[in-house]
């Protein structure tokens, strides 16, 4: 079972490397960082994107760290939401699939993001609407660690805590690197769990690359009735390719042909 998910994640990472190499686009490290989170969510947790017409009670996912959209495109394509052929159009001239999440760019992508600190408020609005309409659906919002610098994250966190939005789940892709350096050096967000607790959230910390424990964790929400949930996922930027792992420059670089070949070799499906 674990190999099954690992192979899916490896396949998604392969698609991502190809997309970035072809398009010469940045943020591959950010995309790799959250692949396992997305696999856990889309292949075992979120009940959504059914072939039939969308239902109002479907779970919702917001990629608030919109710069990692290549991971979402590749995950949705792997899931069969749309054809993988479309991935070849990522970030090339004339594309409808730009480098930041764009509403309706593909089926299953409902919220445009790219400027950090927007997605959680939108998710809180959806959670509020679901409560109002008495719908049993969950809203998952994936944010980055650097994103926690944004004041709007804490406005939304305070609101969700106050209004007891226990259908709202934040997943923090905590890879400890932000655009210009270590999170702890740029603007330290620790003690991170205590901050969320203080805002009325129920916190769990997990290994963000262990799909089994992620699935278990996501399926356990709300962790406490009447409280929104936050999953602090400890991840590694660039996870999956040795020379990209925990390296800041892969926030910007795209692989050249040698690096592409090496990366594909390393990602070989077992």
């Amino acid at each position: 079972m674990n190999t099954y998910y690992k192979n899916i994640a490896a396949q998604i990472r392969k698609d991502i490397v190809m997309m970035h190499a072809k398009a010469n686009s940045s943020h591959i490290g950010s995309a790799f960082s959250c692949v396992d989170l997305l696999v856990a969510l889309y292949f075992d947790v979120i009940k959504t994107h059914s072939k039939n017409k969308k239902r109002v009670d479907e779970d919702k996912f917001i990629l608030s760290k919109g710069h990692a959209v290549s991971a979402l495109y590749a995950t949705l394509a792997q899931k069969g939401v749309f054809s993988k052929n479309l991935l070849k159009r990522y970030c090339i001239n004339g594309t409808r699939l730009p480098g930041h999440a764009t509403r309706n760019a593909v089926k299953g992508l409902d919220v445009s993001t790219g400027s950090l600190g927007h997605g959680l408020s939108v998710g809180a609005g959806m959670a509020l609407a679901a409560k109002h309409d008495k719908l049993k659906k969950r809203i998952f919002v994936l944010i980055s660690d650097g994103e926690c610098n944004e004041g709007s994250i804490w406005e939304a966190a305070m609101f969700a805590g106050h209004h007891k939005l226990d259908n709202l789940v934040v997943i923090i892709d905590y890879n400890k690197l932000q655009a210009f350096g270590r999170v702890s050096d740029v603007l330290d967000i620790e003690p991170l769990a205590d901050k969320w607790k203080a805002f009325g959230w129920q916190v769990k910390e997990v290994d963000g690359h262990n799909i089994k424990s992620l699935t278990k964790c996501f399926n356990a929400v709300p962790f406490k009735k009447g409280r929104p949930s936050v999953v602090i996922s400890h991840t590694i930027k660039g996870k999956g390719v040795s020379f990209m792992q925990d390296r800041l420059e892969w926030h910007y670089k795209s692989p050249n042909s040698d690096q592409l070949a090496l990366a594909m070799k390393e990602l070989g499906i077992k």
């Binding site: 109002v56 409902d110 919220v111 600190g117 927007h118 959680l120 408020s121 939108v122 998710g123 809180a124 609005g125 959806m126 959670a127 509020l128 609407a129 679901a130 309409d133 004041g151 709007s152 406005e155 939304a156 305070m158 609101f159 106050h162």
Partner: peptide, 21 residues
């Protein structure tokens, strides 16, 4: 909803509500 003195969040909330009809 009096969302408090938090206008950025207010607009985001409104967007999320709107996306929910």
């Amino acid at each position: 909803y009096d969302v408090g003195v938090a206008e950025q969040n207010m607009i985001g909330l409104a967007a999320g509500l709107s996306m929910s009809g």
